[in-house]
Design a protein around this nucleic acid. Sequence first.
DNA 1: CTTAGGG
DNA 2: CCCTAAG
Length: 762
Amino acid sequence: MVLQKKLDYGFSGYQVPAIPRATRSARKRVPFRKRLEGNQISAFDLLATVAGKLLLDKESAPATNNTWSAEDQYAVETNTVKEERADVNQSLKLETLNQDSYNAEFFASELVPQTSDPNYSSKKSPSLRNGAPIATSDCLERFDAQKLMNGKIKNEMGGLAFNVETGPYGYVCETSGDCIRPVSENEVLLDDALVLDVKPPALVSSDTSINARSYGDHNPLVSFPAKWDDVNVVTRDDEEKSSGCTHPSSPLRNPFRSSLHIGDRRIRKILALKYWKVGPRSKNVRYSNYDENLKSGYLSRRAYKRLRSRRNYPFKKRKLFYCSSESNSDGRTSSEGLHIGDRRIRKILALKYWKVGPRSKNVRYSNYDENLKSGYLSRRAYKRLRSRRNYPFKKRKLFYCSSESNSDGRTSSEGISDSPAKSNNGNNSILYSKMNGVTGESSSLADQHKSFNSRDSHVKLRIKSFRVPELFIEIPESATVGSLKRTVMEAVTEILGDGLCVGVLLQGKKVRDDNKTLLQTGISCDNLMDALGFSLEPNPSHTTPLLCPGGSPLKLPRGSPLPLARYPANPGLVNQVTCDLSPEPRMPNRGNFIESNNDCASSLIDMFDKSSTESKALVDVPAMSMETLAVVPAHKKSKQSDVAQRRIRRPFSISEVEALVQAVEKLGTGRWRDVKLRAFDNAKHRTYVDLKDKWKTLLHTARISPQQRRGKPVPQELLDRVLNAHTYWSQQQQPSLESCLLSRNSTMIASSRCDVDEKILG
DNA sequence: CTTAGGG
DNA sequence: CCCTAAG
């Protein structure tokens, strides 16, 4: 209840890799839906608005009890945990499809694909009746539970994976086949691209009271007039054809319902049509991805190899950050009165921005290690698998990397939904007002471009899902799966709340002037080749300090946004996404991808350097540091051309340099793995290749004149040591080999090395 | 996987 | 920092 009242968000799912479910990365793309109470809208809603996605929660407002019963416990212990027990989901309510008329109605309405025939779903989808899909979901869930139990819930993100269940999205109507089938969230998410049609400002100016100022101020409590028309969710032609779907916006003008039933057939139909469009290929996408990617040119073999070669980059390993030591283990046993707000206090949560590349490098990286960690794949097994060309694991990896390629126009699952059970508080009229976020912003621009022909100058944006910054969660091992889910839910909810605002980037440059028109900014139909980017940034106006253990519980006014941003709001650090700027979504778009903002990077670096204390060079990831998130290119057909995103540049700090120098002095050049292990074992973002490269640059720096040096000056003393060590080891190596060969006396070398060590270390 | 080296 | 050849 509390969750529902206070948070009131719905998430359709995380994007997660398809391999071992329980190892899915916590980094995810979240096509999110959200509904609000009251006539309040957060900056995040603007985000959603910009995305053009009216993300209405169509869930049936599950009774989210925050208590943990013995029954729950038993369910978990026996691995029979059911989704309906958790707060986070309603997906397995399908289980009651046959018995529970409400749910049956609900889901049936979602699933009716192209006909209003009430029996349609049962006719077309006997599986829904016989419970086969249910079993599927259930099995999956059990699998998760099993893994969680087996994995013993370590304090390592890598060993755990979270997923927000897809809820009613668990089924998909294939527009082509007219059949209903269960679908994994992967499929759904792969296909969640949005196609937006943003009308020019002039058209909407008269109808909105929102202006860019509100938006620019990141005011989370902006009220928007509801005007659905301003932003239309559009479908592509092919989809429209296949589905026979008319413009979806009109039937949805009044989605609020006080009844638990979604009675309106039109709405049902639309929901079904809009939600469950899945391309013909998505059914098999899991298995055929590699081949298809190759075939379709999304991923060349070379690119694939390149991806593979990155496994060794360790920055995927994330250090858990504990911002509180208080356990919430008691949360599961406490009885009814436990509020989310209370748990939030106890919740240990750090939010950290994750660098997410266009090809989801992190996911790519993490598969291997996470599999290892969680015991799904031994190193040896992995090697064995890798050696096989056709092993699906590779495909899967590819699959993740190129997930966008699968959304090349076949599907578009908009999150339009009803929120029947929530309408009792009567504030749901806000739902549509989200749409005005965009129009509101544009409205202020309208004055400047009244001459716009609204019809023809629409800019159609297609935004793949936004990525959600990485979350860090600490939870005691004794916590239950259910509480874990809730914790994750809260974390996600937090970060998706008004702790974020939206930034717009064009060709890599932040568009700061909110008053410019799209045309002035360069976002126009004539400028289709340019990549437009959206970014999620911490909302500066919502910088709330970290909750400390023992801190006073937060009391939230009912209906008000949650206090968010448990992370330091660093305006420069953004979570970026790009979207197509193209009237034809299929149009190849090789626009420039937005590099990570330099200012963002530098601020991160500053933070980083400050936090790396001492000369130990064991630079842990700063607890609260955030990383720039990468741009997600939405250019569907240029996948093969754009490579994985570059890692963020992280200049070596002096202490790191010193540690490096010291280690090289000790170990010599050419033993970078040892150097890494010795001095940078805890610096996950420093690979031995990085160290080698740094040594290279250090050497170069030492050789050039101080005037030519750039960047943060390295102490001359260190540079001297670099030179000395280098000259020594370069002399040492060849003569050593020679002497080895000549004298056949390896002990001599060893002793000489010892001498060297002593000499160098002084 | 590591190392070395070019980019 | 990326990429790749080579071992």
